[in-house]
Design a protein around this nucleic acid. Structure first.
Lengths: 325, 325
DNA sequence: CTACGATGATTAAACGATTAACCAGAGAAT
DNA sequence: ATTCTCTGGTTAATCGTTTAATCATCGTAG
């Protein structure tokens, strides 16, 4: 293995000078710097992560704790965090909390033992991670008191509701899949805030059985707002199977802009969280905390945007439910 | 920070004894072992990753290079690798090759600089990673000469074709999205092997424009085999939109068993790669290589399984295409 | 009674990089 | 000529753990 000692011996100088030359600290002449860097290049030298970590107390690695990377919301997030971390010179060690609190604490402990400099946690169910040895940042919902950044799920819900109100819809079905999820609750709440007084609506938490969309449509429902693209997909396909054209008979709005949103016909209108920006702020916060900067970024909220595709359209002008038998 | 020196001082013994007591090496009396472990427990001690790594030359971390974690095939894989690695005491450092060869070599270099003990690469486009400092394992297609394990994509394709032949279908449309992908080529090839002589088929690589399914159906096609659940989803929804019921008028088979497969109606029949087993073998190989075991596992191939859901059914008995206008 | 093997613990040297403290030499100022 | 400062470099200690080599003690066998 090639180390600084090797380079030092080759050039007849001391390791300290080699280190100084390579890191730019201390006092070294331009000539020696050139000599050292070129020899280092020749030998294919790069500093030992372990040696540096031991001395400096920094590993250059951040831990990322996610509930379940197979759930399609998280990969985009992971990607964003990885990209941002790389820009700041950090690597990303992943850990799986398996959507449980015990799993979460276990994952955090493991990461600390592996020597990470900081931890990013996506807590589920509003659990507050208990970390004392290293700085950490959480991305939770805006309503969560202890978060570093939050996606504005409520505002996302508002966006969805506004868009369909603008298209003339006045009778909504709001679909969620998990009434205990703070994220979903916030999204639904945002929708309700906008719809209250302006339209009729019904909230439905689907677990096993899916609501009878034909029935709902006959009752006047022309728009479905969901808390996830997966639910939207289910709604669209259930609707079309029963002869309800989307968006002609019924509009459907998704959430999260998953890869499937553009793979399905009609393509899904959806609400997009800015995962890149969330990742950017999380990493920036941790970076500052790790470098012990005097002032740290304060908790902030990132708004969502809307992308209108084929699954939403204006409310039918003539007869509201053309499929009535 | 709590270290072995602390424990040693507390108990009036030497650090070497502490180390020996904790690792079970050397010669230490049972009494001292008990003393040391209990004191370590009290203080909440755990070994410094950096210190240990520096001395032993092992970081206990594996690198995972994937083309693009936002593509829905990869998260399941990452999950499997993480779980298996954890069982062997390894952590997983992720790196993004951005689906390019330069990105791949850059990612590998970064991982090595961070001191990983081994690297798992999911190479795309049959690129052979050039790694010399640490052992590595690749998961490629069976037709790729330099792989550690491979999912049997060809056999997966055969499975798909067989299943629909058994259901009575005799006229197939094979859909792929990327004719350059070795994985997709292998899958299609497997299908063709089985269909040759037994049925009529047409291969179609879709990029922007999707084939006219009504037209195809009128031409006699009753089954669509795809190389991905995303394509299958597209096919199902395109079909149902044009009035072709799935599976009554046309059967659709997916690939990979993505989360969306059960979120759509009809639920997608699909071919499932055993990512857990793939991950297990990759990690096992690396573990053996890192421990310098004399004999390493030889390259092997993991078969796929089929799961039949709602999107496939028996070929229509009476009139093959009931939607003819 | 002495030598020896076994046992249990200690000493000290790594591993590779960083960094505070120190030192030699040259030029400038007094 | 002497001191002072600045420059460019070296020495040595340090981070925390592991491990080979060494040492002391004690029971036992020759």
């Amino acid at each position: 293995m090639i180390n600084q000692k090797q380079i030092a011996n080759d050039l007849g100088i001391s390791v300290a000078t080699v280190s100084n030359a390579l890191t730019g600290k201390g006092r070294v002449s331009e000539d020696v710097i050139r000599l050292v860097t070129s020899r280092a290049e020749e030998l294919g030298y790069f500093p030992s992560a372990a040696g540096r970590a031991l001395k400096t107390g920094r590993s250059g690695i951040l831990g990322l704790v996610m509930p379940d990377i197979t759930k399609p919301v998280f990969p985009k997030f992971a990607e964003g965090v990885e990209a941002e971390a790389e820009k700041c010179g950090f690597g990303i060690l992943i850990a799986n909390s398996r959507s449980t609190e015990e799993g979460q604490t276990k994952a955090i402990k493991q990461l600390i033992q592996r020597g990470v400099d900081g931890i990013i946690v996506l807590p589920q169910r509003r659990t507050a991670p208990n970390i004392n040895r290293v700085p950490y940042a959480t991305a939770s919902t805006a309503s969560d008191p202890n978060n570093t950044v939050a996606a504005n799920h409520t505002q996302g819900g508002q966006l969805a509701a506004h868009a369909l109100l603008d298209l003339g819809h006045r009778n909504f079905l709001l679909l969620g899949s998990d009434a205990l999820s703070p994220v979903q609750k916030d999204r639904i709440e945002g929708m309700i805030e906008v719809l209250n007084g302006a339209a009729q609506y019904e909230v439905c938490w689907v677990s096993e059985s899916f609501p009878d969309l034909v029935q709902k449509n006959q009752d006047g429902v022309t728009a479905i707002l969901t808390t996830s693209d997966l639910l939207a997909l289910r709604a669209v396909t259930e609707a079309e199977r029963s002869g309800l054209k989307c968006p002609e008979a019924i509009s459907v709005m998704g959430f999260d802009d998953l890869p499937l949103a553009t793979a399905v016909r009609p393509t899904l209108s959806t609400i997009v969280p800015d995962t890149t920006e969330l990742a950017r702020r999380l990493v920036a916060y941790l970076d500052a905390a790790i470098r012990q900067e005097p002032t740290l970024p304060t908790p902030s909220i990132v708004d969502m945007t809307i992308v209108l595709r084929e699954s939403t359209g204006p409310v039918a002008t003539q007869f509201p439910n053309p499929t009535r038998r």
